[in-house]
Amino acid sequence: MIKVDNLQKVYQTNGKSIVALENIDLEITQGEIFGIIGYSGAGKSTLIRCFNMLETPTSGNIIIDNQDITRLSTTQLREKRKEIGMIFQHFNLLSARTVRGNIAYPLEIAGMKKADINKRVDELIHLVGLTNQADSYPAQLSGGQKQRVGIARAIANNPKVLLCDEATSALDPKTTLSILELLKDINRRLGLTMVLITHEMEVIKNICDRVAVIDQGQIAELGTVLQLFSQPKTKIAHEFLKQVTHVEVPEEILANFASKDSATHKLLQLSFLGETTSNPVISDMIKTHDIDINILHGQINRIQDTPYGTLVMTVEGAPENISNALKYLKENNIRIEVLTNGL
């Protein structure tokens, strides 16, 4: 559906060249929910705006549905954009129009007949759950309701691709989850290809099939969300994972543990994915490697339909036994983060 080849974007500012994107290669398949995560200034917003040519790439190609949009004329691009919907962080609704009027706007621009517009708007209002707010104005809506209007407006012309630019960043956590559920429902119903940019790993965890981690204008890591959680390869990927997996250990425990011998005492955070969450790995480790553990914290969440657990514990024993125990955990596909080794 979307293929990006060697994309580069360079800005000229005060006689200086600023590289926003460099050597970007991506393939996004039909019906996929694809996430792009990065810190502010990493280039993610520039990248997604290149997908509908709101930003013109300096070089490279962007092929959407077998058509290179970087080579289209102004008229051709205007038509192509009808196939690419976009929702924004700050909603961008027309304050003088009702919910119905906002959703109808792109259909009016497209020249659709009034009767067909009314029918389509009714369908969309029902789809996004705003039946009781159809005649309300944006000022009368909550943030989540405004974003639902933005989603309905973005898909009004039956696009093939939906771009989501920090679509949940302005929302509280509960509302964010409801919007993500709506996007997943739309994806399932319509088979719509979605590209989300975000700086929140919670969003990636809940909705995306694959994810690209972008850093300083380049793709630092790319893979399925499960791969990112189970086998992160880069420092920046580890940093983002801490948003949803890291447990804050009380300072008094860290201080007490830091005074112990690092060869015989370790404080660890373990991450379990899929079937390892239900296997008695820790029990078997204790039995076979002659070590003592003390569990400080544990929890199980889900990455879409896959269980994902974290466990914080201390390990004490002979150095060789601890080394063998950690090797055993890795052999069982458990990711280990040493929080502190002691002295």
Rank of each mutant, 00 (worst) to 15 (best):
M1C: 05
I2K: 04
Q8D: 11
V10S: 06
V10H: 02
V10L: 04
V10N: 08
Y11K: 03
S17M: 04
V19S: 12
A20C: 05
L21S: 06
L21R: 07
N23E: 15
I24R: 02
L26D: 05
E32N: 10
G35H: 12
I36Y: 01
I37S: 06
G41M: 09
G41T: 06
L47N: 00
I48D: 00
R49V: 09
N52P: 03
P57C: 09
I64A: 08
N66A: 14
Q67L: 12
R71H: 12
S73P: 14
T75D: 14
L77N: 03
E79R: 09
E79V: 09
E79Q: 12
K82W: 07
E83V: 01
E83S: 15
G85V: 02
H90R: 15
A96K: 13
V99T: 13
Y105D: 07
P106N: 08
L107I: 04
L107G: 03
I109G: 07
G111K: 14
K114M: 08
A115F: 01
I117W: 00
K119W: 00
V121W: 04
E123R: 03
E123G: 04
L124I: 10
L127M: 10
V128W: 05
A139Y: 12
Q147I: 00
G150E: 01
G150C: 03
A152H: 08
A152P: 03
A154K: 01
N157D: 05
P159A: 11
V161H: 05
V161F: 12
L162K: 09
L162V: 15
L162G: 07
L163G: 06
E166D: 00
S169Q: 10
A170E: 00
K174P: 01
K174V: 15
L182V: 06
L183Y: 07
R188I: 04
R189E: 10
R189K: 11
G191C: 05
T193P: 09
V195C: 11
L196E: 07
H199Y: 07
N206K: 11
I214W: 06
G217K: 10
Q218W: 00
I219T: 00
A220K: 04
E221G: 03
T224E: 13
V225L: 05
L226A: 14
F229G: 05
S230I: 01
K235F: 02
K242T: 07
T245N: 11
P250K: 14
E251Y: 10
N256A: 14
N256K: 14
S262W: 07
S262A: 14
T264E: 13
K266F: 01
L267K: 04
L267A: 08
L268R: 06
L268E: 03
Q269Y: 07
L270N: 04
L273I: 15
E275R: 14
T276F: 10
T277L: 05
T277R: 08
S278A: 11
V281N: 13
M285L: 15
T288S: 14
H289P: 04
D290F: 10
D292I: 08
I293W: 02
H297V: 01
G298C: 02
P307D: 09
T310Y: 10
V312K: 00
V315E: 01
G317D: 06
S323G: 04
N324D: 11
A325G: 01
K327E: 11
E331R: 12
N332C: 07
I336L: 13
I336S: 09
